[in-house]
Amino acid sequence: MDNPYKRKKDPERVKQLILDAAMHQLAEQGLTGFSLQSVADAAGVTKGGLLHHFPSKQALMQSAVVEVISLLDQAIEEHIEKDPVDYGCFTRAYIHFTLQKDMHGIGSLSTAVSMAMLTDQVFNQRWVEWMDGRLARHVQTDANMDLMLLRYAADGLWLTMYTGIDEHSNTQLLVDEMLCRTYPASS
């Protein structure tokens, strides 16, 4: 007779539960609050079960960062598909998601990855590879120097927002102005 309390094995689902819990913890706690035990608890697995899927804290964090970059990439792609103007489409999507204030969606996950990127060379390299790939895909629409400056400005504004030194009343004005400048100049 089957034991009704024994969980059926579904390693892919368990692995995804662990990744989801890790991404959530990165978004909520950052790297400093990231622990294997709290991820295991949130995923409903033992620490040993977590280590079965991810042999180290670094491996789990790397997988979580890759997953977040993949989710960000999907969100950016969806944003671009809805954009009726080709010129600057990637830059507009990048600014939108970089400067998003939501604390539960892709914006908070993106912030977690950005913080990881600032402190870890492996995460930084993954981000650089993603950005280089995106820029290569959008060379026809986003290879303009003005658009590059706007992406860098978005990164700088993100840092001031993250550290809390931005003046909130001006932040939205800056975001709106940056987005406005991503469109081609009218003749």
Rank of each mutant, 00 (worst) to 15 (best):
I165F: 14
G133E: 12
M115Y: 13
M117P: 12
N170Y: 10
F97V: 06
S38T: 14
A154Q: 02
P184H: 01
D102W: 05
L174H: 07
D83A: 02
V39Q: 13
R181A: 00
A59H: 10
L147E: 02
P4D: 02
T98M: 14
S169V: 09
D102P: 02
A93P: 00
A93D: 01
L60F: 12
I18H: 00
E28M: 15
A116F: 04
R137M: 09
R137A: 14
V45D: 11
Q62P: 05
L147D: 02
E67V: 06
K8I: 04
S114H: 12
L150F: 00
D86A: 03
M61W: 05
I95C: 05
S63F: 07
L135G: 01
Q25T: 10
P184E: 00
D86Q: 02
S108L: 07
K8G: 09
D73I: 07
L173K: 11
D102R: 06
L109I: 05
H53A: 11
S63Q: 13
A40Q: 01
T141F: 01
T32F: 12
D41L: 07
R13M: 10
I80L: 04
K15T: 14
G44E: 05
G49H: 06
Y87M: 03
V66Y: 08
V122A: 08
L31F: 05
F34W: 13
I18F: 03
H168M: 11
A112V: 03
D83M: 03
T32Y: 06
G88N: 00
D102G: 03
G156S: 10
M103C: 05
N124M: 12
Y5G: 10
W127P: 02
P84S: 00
L71G: 06
S169Y: 13
R13H: 08
H168Y: 10
Q58K: 08
